[in-house]
Design a protein around this nucleic acid. Sequence first.
DNA 1: CCACGGATTGGCT
DNA 2: GCCAATCCGTGGA
Length: 204
Amino acid sequence: MIDIKSLSKLNKKYYSKDVNTVAKKLLGKLLVHNIGRIKLAGMIVEVEAYNGKVDQAAHTYIGKTKRNKIMFNEGGYLYVYFTYGVHFCCNIVTGKKDEGTAVLIRGIEPILGIEKMKANRFSSNKIESNKIFNLTNGPGKICQAFQINKSHYGLDLTKDKIYLLEFKKIKEEEIICTTRIGIKKSIDLPWRYYIKDNPFVSKK
DNA sequence: CCACGGATTGGCT
DNA sequence: GCCAATCCGTGGA
């Protein structure tokens, strides 16, 4: 069992940088969710940057609304949204106040609480596809495994029970930069980053 | 292996 | 009323 007590938590200043800078640096960090005495933790292996100023695919491109308003805060908050009538997706707000930028978490390698994640993902009669790599290789899957939903919208990552820790140093040459997935606008922006050869990346 | 479509809510026009 | 920053089961090659 890995002891994460000695790892340091990312602070406000860390999240306040430019969204693409932060996105890249989030690779190798540990996402932690404390649920009672259970601790869920996993290493971020795939992310995408969204910037409403220049990016039509960003939810903030249309300006401030009830749904996206947390993205206009300064960095360090959790933006959770509901999509396709089925799934939640989890984002890290970045930058300065009123920028409207965030990083979508798309792939995670489970580290702690794996049995709990399995229970969250594969509860019922379903699935022969309950392989370990299918736990958290996608944004909707991550929220299901980590029990993240609308109630966590706007949570402060420096003060609350969901937060990020320093974990593994990722070398520049291990990072793949490419175009984003599942969008119809601004499809050519190379704002997706993932760790080369990691099995928890959602898609090559 | 790959392509396709259904699920199902809520945000915005 | 349209459609989405997705996932999964099905059906055909």
